[in-house]
């Protein structure tokens, strides 16, 4: 195990899949650092949807999300030589994306408007929606739209920091440790923010949640 892997294992409680992913990323990053610029495309292809998802769920605006995701990749490409593999590439990339988004949200604090992506009708989603509706076709569509709006409204009522933690934990499925590394705060802070954010969301979405 080399120094970078040791550092990574020390800072993060990584799952085996994440470790494998981090190792393969490091190989690609080394190729890019060696001058093989085209290798960066593999990283874009691999992470674009996840990064986009994080940014979108933080902004609730698809145009802003697209722009910010592109900016994050460009920033990562420009400063790839400074990446020293102390953390995994995806944590580093997420950090860039989250910081860019936070900066954007702080700048456009008063100018918030939604533009939603369509909810894809996957098995899990369909099951949940079926649970929530009376299985009437027309009502179902309306209900999904209304629910999506309420969800995003509730998310946007959270502070930027709380929204970030909820997005990374509940939607992206990252661990507390990874979130702590991305946001630059302690694991305890992440947990407390998550707890507080959930309480607020629960109060906002009470209508849809069982007591």
């Amino acid at each position: 195990m080399d120094v970078a892997s040791k550092a990574l294992a020390k800072t993060l409680v990584v799952s085996p899949e994440r470790q494998v992913e981090a190792d393969s990323d490091r190989v690609i990053v080394q190729r890019v650092q060696a001058g093989e610029v085209a290798a960066f495309d593999a990283l874009i292809l691999k992470y674009r949807e996840r990064v986009y998802g994080v940014v979108y769920n933080m902004t609730s605006n698809r145009e802003d999300a697209a722009d910010l995701t592109q900016d994050a990749f460009i920033k990562a490409f420009q400063s790839i030589n400074r990446f020293q593999a102390q953390s995994s590439f995806f944590t580093w990339l997420y950090r860039i994306a989250v910081n860019s988004t936070l900066t954007h949200l702080r700048k456009a604090k008063l100018r918030t408007f939604f533009s939603f992506e369509k909810i894809t009708d996957e098995d899990k989603t369909a099951q949940l929606v079926n649970q929530l509706t009376d299985k009437n076709g027309a009502d179902r569509e309306l209900f999904i739209r209304e629910l999506q709006e309420k969800l995003n409204e509730a998310m946007m009522k959270l502070s930027i920091k709380h929204r970030t933690v909820v997005t990374l934990f509940e939607i992206e499925g990252l661990s507390h440790e990874e979130i702590a590394e991305i946001t630059g705060c302690s694991v305890g802070t992440v947990r407390s923010r998550l707890h507080y954010a959930k309480q607020l969301l629960q109060a906002e979405l009470q209508r849809y949640i069982s007591q």
């Binding site: 998802g53 909810i119 894809t120 009708d121 949940l128 649970q131 929530l132 969800l151 069982s210």
Partner: peptide
């Protein structure tokens, strides 16, 4: 909302995962 007694906050947040671009 007839089935709302079975839905949790986590379930609702899972819906956000399904918001993906085409």
């Amino acid at each position: 909302h007839p089935s709302k007694s079975k839905v949790t906050l986590e379930d609702l947040l899972q819906l956000k995962r399904a918001e993906r671009p085409p």
